[in-house]
Each structure stands twice: as C-alpha cells, then as structure tokens.
Amino acid sequence: MKFKDSDKILKANIINLREKNKLTQIELAEKVGLDATIISKIENETRKVSSSELNKFANIFSVSTDYLLGNTSNSYQDELDLKDFLDQNLEKGMTYADEKLTEEDKEKLKIALTQIFWKHHKDNK
C-alpha cells in the first residue's frame, strides 16, 4: 500500500490533535468507534483512513476535513461562530418548514443551541 503526502499530513494532524487534546490512542479509538490497534496503524502509516473515519476525526477534534488533509492551515475555516450566527440570523425573519418563528420561538432556539454547544464543549475538554 503506497501512501501519498496527504496521508502523511493526515497522520501528523491526527497525532498532533490527539496529543493536543491529551487523548491516548485507546481514548481516541473509543471516540471514533475503532479498535486501538487501528489508531496505531493509522499513526504508523500502515493503514489508510476511510472517508467516514475522516469525518469522525474532524467532528471529534472540531476541525474541518480540509484541515486534517492539509488543504488549509486554518482548522476552523469551514465553521461559523454559533453566537454570531444566532445574533445575525435571529434578528431577521426566520422560518422552520415555511412557518415563521415567533420571538418566543427564536429565544427558545437560541437557549437550546447555546446549551447544546456548552454541553458539547464541556464533554470534549
């Protein structure tokens, strides 16, 4: 199996992000839903990463797949700031399945999304 430069970059990014997040190979494997030996093989370039695994790594580390593959140096290039998004979009008219949201609905949506964000943030620390 021949590995390309992008595979080497992916491997390096996975190792760097795993270490930055203070995760062992076993802990990362559990989060991805893989056996720890597979993480070891990925990091030692004896196994390639599937596209579904690539997406899982991106989600776990909260980075874009482009960042993992070395296509961008900005890990958050494809992400929107949730607070900015809510502030900008809740001011406008908003609909759900063509039904207009009331001011109360908008406030509930903002609270729910904010709580989900902070729970996810806390769980991934």
Rank of each mutant, 00 (worst) to 15 (best):
Q25K: 11
E91R: 05
D5M: 14
W118L: 15
A112P: 05
S52D: 13
I60D: 05
I111K: 06
I9M: 10
I39W: 02
K41R: 15
L80Q: 02
D7I: 00
K106M: 05
D98Q: 14
A36S: 12
L10R: 01
I116H: 12
E53L: 06
Y96G: 07
I116W: 11
D5I: 15
Q115C: 07
F117L: 10
K56S: 14
N21F: 11
E107M: 15
E103A: 13
K56P: 08
L86W: 03
L109Y: 09
K31V: 04
L10P: 03
Q25S: 08
E30T: 06
F3W: 04
F117Y: 15
D84E: 14
D84H: 11
D81K: 12
I38Q: 15
T102L: 11
K110C: 13
A97G: 07
K48F: 12
L86F: 04
N21S: 10
F85K: 05
R18S: 01
I15G: 01
A112R: 11
E45W: 00
D35G: 05
A58Y: 04
Y67C: 07
L101F: 02
D105W: 07
S62Y: 10
N44T: 13
D123M: 14
T24I: 08
V32F: 08
D66R: 02
K4D: 13
K83Y: 04
D87H: 12
K106A: 01
K31I: 05
D87G: 00
E53W: 12
T72L: 03
D7L: 00
T46I: 05
T95R: 07
E99C: 05
T95Q: 08
L90P: 00
S62H: 10
K8P: 07
L10Y: 05
M1E: 12
S6N: 04
S52C: 04
A112W: 10
T46V: 07
S50A: 06
E79A: 13
